[in-house]
Design a protein around this nucleic acid. Structure first.
Length: 186
DNA sequence: GGAACGATTGAT
DNA sequence: TCAATCGTTCCT
């Protein structure tokens, strides 16, 4: 469980599929099953960490098992799991969740009823889960924002190219659960 | 101090 | 297809 994050980043990205993301906020508790991830590596031009350590990406260079959250396109928070040893800037972007608990709260936050649309993208799931920049650096093992590893790995993993990037777009670093209807794109 | 850009989303 | 929207980064 604890050593979930003590593996190569691409392995963590796959291992996170099927695990649960839990956020206990003052509004209530929301839980989602992770169904889609992307790996961002140290030698990867698409990664924020590629240019070296800056104030924004500093968390990526911290110890594994923490949250790295950033504001994207001026309006969307994106949630990442920090991986690799301290000093190495790598992380796994969580791209989609299957809503499990607190669906009413998610619908309120997202202003939509459709359950398949609540968490089907990095910006959407952060909104639905109530994740903001305030959660940056949260300890994902033991805090109000945490991940519970699931033993259930009865799923096939699809490996493909990442979404929305211009550099490093040929690498196969996106992973999702085959035939799951909650992923960000079909 | 200024400007271009981006790991997206939702409306047109 | 395209506008919304703003912090980060890089240039002057």
């Amino acid at each position: 469980m604890i050593d979930l994050f003590d593996k190569p980043t691409t392995e963590v990205a796959k291992a996170l599929l099927g695990s649960y993301l839990i956020h206990e906020s003052c509004e209530g508790t929301t839980i989602g099953k992770i169904v889609e991830t992307e790996a961002y590596l140290a030698d990867d031009p698409a990664s924020h960490s590629f240019v070296g350590k800056t104030p924004r990406n500093a968390m990526m260079f911290g110890s594994a098992g923490k949250a790295y959250i950033y504001l994207n396109y001026g309006m969307h928070n994106c949630f990442n799991v920090v991986t690799a040893k301290e000093g190495i800037g790598e992380a796994v972007l969580i791209r989609a969740l299957e809503p499990i608990k607190g669906i009413k709260l998610m619908q309120k936050r997202r202003k939509t009823e459709k359950v398949t649309d609540l968490c089907s993208g990095p910006g959407k799931l952060s909104k639905a889960m109530g994740i903001t920049l305030k959660n940056n650096g949260a300890d994902l093992i033991n805090s109000n924002l945490r991940i519970i590893l699931s033993d259930n790995s009865n799923h096939k993993i699809v490996k493909t190219t990442r979404v929305g990037i211009t550099k490093g777009s040929k690498r196969l670093l996106r992973f999702y659960i085959k035939d799951n209807s909650f992923i960000s794109k079909k």
